[in-house]
Design a protein around this nucleic acid. Structure first.
Length: 571
RNA sequence: GGACUCGUAGCCUAGCCUGGAUAGGGCGUCGGACUUCUAAUCCGAAAGUCGCAGGUUCAAUUCCUGCCGGGUCCGCCA
């Protein structure tokens, strides 16, 4: 096997270009427009400047000068570009032999040495007083996908969750339950049950502002470990978590470790006080401890400890950073949190740096999801509930399946509905750049046509169907020069980019490149599908096309797997 | 007030970090394609001052400055 990427082309061209380094050439190489079958292109504008020759002439001269290497089909000058076409068969051979490992083929072939890192990924860190919503879904999909990608790259990944399970917001649900709950057990999904009392608290507060004092009183008792309050707290918290776990299961996510804020929130205090002793921080007249970030970091100062000496959110987060390092001895720690907390994380990381905790920390921030009526706010109840949404996409998918294949068993219909519905939901969110903010229109957003998860799954199923119907066995012994059709060549071209896409995603956290890549691949496939019959008289061509479509299938399956999306052999 | 961020056809979105081939897709609209491997598909068409104005460059959607418009955040919430 031999895998060709930008670097391979650059190393080859270095033989003919003395004015630039391999690295410089590599950075110049681009991917030609999609209607061309060339895999890579070298624009000659830079060389033109150095050599004081017309770009088109340089491309011409180079094309005459170069000796075609084994891994290329041809090299051609087109205007100011020198275009390269990677040998078709080599690409298919790479995929067919390396199977699901194709995305990391360069590592396997040892062309690329990568350090194996220990990486901690923290998400979604919900509050334990209300159910998960659409924002959490985006968070979880991003968190688990980036974890999948790092795992695929053979890093040692630890997915950790953190429960914000203490504080005034928790006591609000507790108080409402105490007053109105009649000591009932949940009669629905337990996190929804708990969430109802959070909403009920708001209603109580509308009637009587002073109820907030009772919640404060309850918080005080909680901190004093009052056994009654703790008992109530434990009951509600466990219900909430039990409910969350059902949702995690639906989404297919699991965690290696769970942190509970309640178990360590006070421990950060010690670190702050030590910092104060080292004169890293300042004590205000009223007793609050402040991190001076303005001069050194050009950030607003941050309060680390309240004037009454109690912890703030950042107090415990500072401790947690040390705790995670201690637990996992990580090389890199990733926090998947929305972009509204960008400043907060800059401040947190700055404070940690001041404390000498100079680990590799990264805030993986993503854009907020808005509703047509504005920002989602749990308190006001204008949220898209995660479980409702999951149910809805499954229901919509069920109807699609039911309309097409009425005679399937209920069990099979449900299975397909689950896999297709979840694909639609996950793909819809992951195909957009994590940075993009978007408005979610509940009725229109989930579709099964166009740029969707089911569109990609459909290609997979179509291929499976062809392979099932063909009498031939898939083999690597094909006529290597047989691919002539434009759609065949474009399909093979596209297949070659998968490993480079994976690299870019791991480097830049651009998860959406995977869905975008798969869409392009599937669009080219569907084009191929309508113009090139696979099963046919010419068995030599059939064999070659069978191999080609199997390779497409391998890449689709692995690409979707990284996104937590399953494939179906029939749909 | 300050910091950050976004503005690409009627709607949604990719490309911007690292400037280069006629700015890719999708939805919707209009017109075609199921006696042939699954039409959740494909083919074609109409639709764009890449917010506006400057600047840098052989070359700007991409980099820089200013402006206009939206959003998020800004010491004792989480």
């Amino acid at each position: 096997m031999f895998s060709v990427d930008k670097r391979t082309i650059a190393e080859f061209m270095k033989n003919y270009i003395s004015d630039l380094t391999v690295e410089e050439i590599k950075d110049l190489i681009e991917i030609p427009p999609s209607d061309m079958v060339y895999s890579y292109a070298l624009p000659t504008f830079h060389l033109a400047k150095i050599e004081k020759k017309a770009p088109a002439l340089i491309a011409q001269d180079l094309s005459k000068e170069v000796e075609l290497p084994e891994f290329l089909n041809n090299i051609e000058a087109v205007g100011p570009y020198l275009n390269f076409k990677v040998k078709d068969f080599m690409i298919l051979e790479n995929i067919y032999k390396s199977k699901d490992q194709y995305g990391i083929i360069r590592e396997i072939l040892n062309k690329k040495k990568e350090e194996k890192l220990r990486i901690v990924v923290e998400y979604p860190a919900p509050n334990t007083n209300k159910p998960l919503h659409l924002g959490h879904i985006r968070n979880m999909l991003i968190g688990s996908s980036i974890s999948n990608i790092f795992k695929y790259k053979k890093h040692h990944v630890f997915e950790v969750n953190l429960y914000n399970d203490r504080g005034i917001h928790i006591c609000k649900s507790m108080l409402a339950y105490k007053l109105l709950g009649d000591n009932k057990n949940p009669d629905k999904k337990p996190d929804h049950f708990v969430g109802e009392y959070y909403v009920k608290f708001s209603e109580l507060k509308d009637q009587d502002e002073e109820i907030i004092d009772d919640a404060q009183e309850m918080l005080k008792k909680w901190e004093e470990k009052d056994s009654e309050v703790r008992k109530l707290w434990k009951k509600l918290r466990n219900w909430a978590i039990k409910g969350f776990e059902e949702t995690y299961k639906e989404l297919g996510i699991t965690f290696d470790k769970i942190y509970y804020e309640s178990e360590y929130y006070w421990k950060g205090k010690q670190l702050i006080i030590e910092g104060l002793k080292k004169e890293l921080f300042n004590k205000e007249e009223d007793g609050a401890i402040i991190a001076p970030l303005e001069e050194k970091f050009n950030l607003p100062n941050k309060v680390l400890l309240r004037s009454d000496g109690t912890s703030l959110y950042i107090t415990q987060d500072i401790y947690l950073a040390f705790l995670k390092k201690n637990d996992f001895n990580y090389d890199k720690s990733i926090y998947v949190v929305g972009n509204e907390q960008k400043l907060y994380f800059k401040q947190l990381f700055a404070v940690l740096d001041m404390l000498g905790f100079e680990e590799d920390k990264y805030h993986f921030s993503y854009g907020m999801i808005y509703l047509p009526e504005g920002k989602m706010k749990s308190r006001e109840g204008n949220v898209v509930d995660a479980d409702d949404l999951i149910e809805e996409v499954k229901r919509l998918a069920y109807d699609e399946v039911d309309n097409r294949y009425d005679n399937l068993s209920e069990k099979e219909k449900d299975k397909r509905a689950r896999i297709i519905g979840m694909a639609a939901l996950k793909f819809f969110i992951l195909k957009m750049s994590p940075k993009t903010e978007f408005v979610f229109y509940p009725k229109e957003s989930i579709s099964f046509e166009g740029e969707t998860g089911p569109y990609v799954q459909y290609v997979y199923a179509r291929i499976e169907s062809i392979i099932r119907k063909s009498e031939r066995k898939i083999t690597l012994t094909i006529n290597q020069g047989i691919f002539q059709d434009n759609t065949e060549l474009k399909l093979i071209k596209q297949l070659n980019y998968f490993p480079e896409i994976i690299d870019t995603v791991a480097k830049n956290y651009d998860i959406h490149l995977i869905p975008q890549y798969l869409l392009t691949l599937c669009q080219v496939f569907n084009s191929f599908y309508s113009s090139c019959p696979v099963i046919q008289e010419d068995k030599e061509l059939e064999d070659a096309r069978l191999l080609l479509i199997r390779c497409v299938q391998i890449v689709i399956k692995q690409g979707l797997k990284l996104l937590g999306i399953e494939t179906l052999e029939e749909m």
